[in-house]
């Protein structure tokens, strides 16, 4: 049975910022991006590092241009990728997926906004 737990006031987290907290026995990070709030477990799937304390970056991608040259660019104009400070594994905050290997993920939890209040939906305890 899922648990809906109050986590924070929305105003505590500014645009592009995150908070880290303990909730329901888990270490979490709640990030505020341009389209809402996203919660990740603060545990990297690699070596259990505090991924939610990492710096945020824009995703760098590359394509092959018509002239055969490789062109690098930002995938989106928003720093919505967090890099684990231990080894640099990069995760998409919205999905928890590792950019280098989408099969490797940080556990992601739904966030519900109710007025000024943020609730995180955790698995049953």
């Amino acid at each position: 049975m899922a648990r809906r737990l109050w986590a924070a006031r929305a105003s505590e987290i500014g645009p592009g910022e995150r908070i880290r907290l303990e909730l329901g026995g888990l270490e979490l990070g709640i990030f505020r991006l341009s389209d809402g709030f996203f919660a990740l477990e603060d545990k990297c799937p690699h070596q259990q590092g505090p991924v939610c304390s990492g710096n945020l970056f824009r995703e760098i991608t590359a394509t092959v241009a018509e002239d055969g040259r490789v062109r690098e660019r930002y995938a989106r104009d928003e720093a919505d990728v967090v890099a684990c400070p231990m080894h640099g594994w990069e995760f998409e905050i919205r999905t928890g997926e590792c950019l280098a290997n989408r099969r490797r993920k940080v556990q992601r939890f739904p966030v519900e906004v109710d007025g000024e209040d943020l609730y995180v939906i955790l698995p049953g305890g």
Binding site: H46, F57, I60, T61, A62, E72, H87, G88, W89, E90, C98, L99, A100, N101, R104
Partner: peptide, 8 residues
């Protein structure tokens, strides 16, 4: 896995 940013 650690340095994907250098091989995008």
């Amino acid at each position: 896995m650690r340095r994907r940013v250098e091989a995008p």
